[in-house]
Nucleic acid binder design. Sequence first.
DNA 1: CGGGGCCTAAACACTC
DNA 2: GGAGTGTTTAGGCCCC
Length: 431
Amino acid sequence: MMVESASETIRTTTSNQNGVSNLSSQLDGGGGREGGSNGDNNGEISPVDLLHLQQQQVCVCVCTSCSVVCACAPVHLNNEHALDDRSTAQCRIQVGHTHTHTDERLQAMMTHLHMRPSEPKPFNQPLNLASSGSLLKRESEVYPEGLPHPPTSATAPITPLRQGPSVISSSSLHSHSHPHGVGPIRRRIADKFCTPIASELAQNCEFYKNADVRPPFTYASLIRHAILEAPDRQLTLNEIYNWFTRMFAYFRRNTATWKNAVRHNLSLHKCFVRVENVKGAVWTVDEVEYQKRRPPKMTGSPTLVKNMISGLGFGSLNASYQAALAESSLTLLNSQGLVNPSSAASLNMLHGMGHDDVSSTVEQVNSNGSCSPTLSPQQYGHQVHVKEEPTEIEEDSRSMSLMATVTQNMALPSDRDDRDLDDDLPTEELE
DNA sequence: CGGGGCCTAAACACTC
DNA sequence: GGAGTGTTTAGGCCCC
């Protein structure tokens, strides 16, 4: 199947009070496989289903290429139809459209959290969260339902929420010139402090696979992770390439750039050792050298401790990112297994932070690129490495991030009331 | 402000 | 000769 045709034939259908009949008619007349619970009903939606859809105000997409009704066009497209740049752009349009429809749900969630719906900066994540609600609102106002939204750029990587202090200021949201005049600037909150890359990937691998998001890790960390993931802990260069493209949608474009960077890193860092074997030249990791390169910074660093503590209040953000995806994308068809016990992670992060990344958790993402929802307790103490490009997709990202926040917080155990939630947030971030 | 880490770009050499 | 691979250098940004 042609990728282009797949990406262009995703229809978004809103099933709110005014839209259920529309969904019903589309399902009825679709002639293809029906999703949801009406598959055995000749395409008709039962009253129960109608009520359910009304209550959930779900926004579903119908892929006319394969007649699959899906809750998340990007996920579906990437899983069923390989995404190229064009498809990625189409996914963004769908994401934006979907989140427009979920605006009301978002408002209700924020109300639940005692947040003012128009609160521009609920947390200290200006990039991902600042004015997320207002962005949604604004978008929905500017682009009424039923009207197509302007497409977002295909060259706009976004980055899921990370914990800890962000150096991304509102002023920095506007891109500056790339040093070389063509590329994006980088707002690096790099994978310092022994980033738990494995747990991050385990948590967000589906996201990274589908979203054009630059992973918040250095090339060296990613290369090391790829190698350690391999059964024999060695990979050829081409296998490393394949791992990058398999695991990250971001690395499915600009191949010359990042492949050059991969080779550069392999040669530059002593921790990567080239070995000749039957497969030819393979690359392995010298853990000793790697640890030399990245000495532990967790012990006794007041700044780091402060950062981590300040990040605790936002621990749910990262974990909740997938929950948001699940919430927004898999309401009808919960087939991707994106939901993870993130609320538990939010609590667990109070303990056991400050550990190196891959060694203990590399098994969470297997060599096939499949993801385990297993959570590691040390996943919120690191920072973001954000590569931004000046496009509107960041709004989608922030919208999703806020959705993630809300969704996750709603999933917190009931013994933590809203006041506790507020208490977790650094007061200065609520200003 | 300097050092270090990181990224991107590019040039060059080598092998198949 | 071209593609892929590996090495090296340079310039720039960001954080400490």
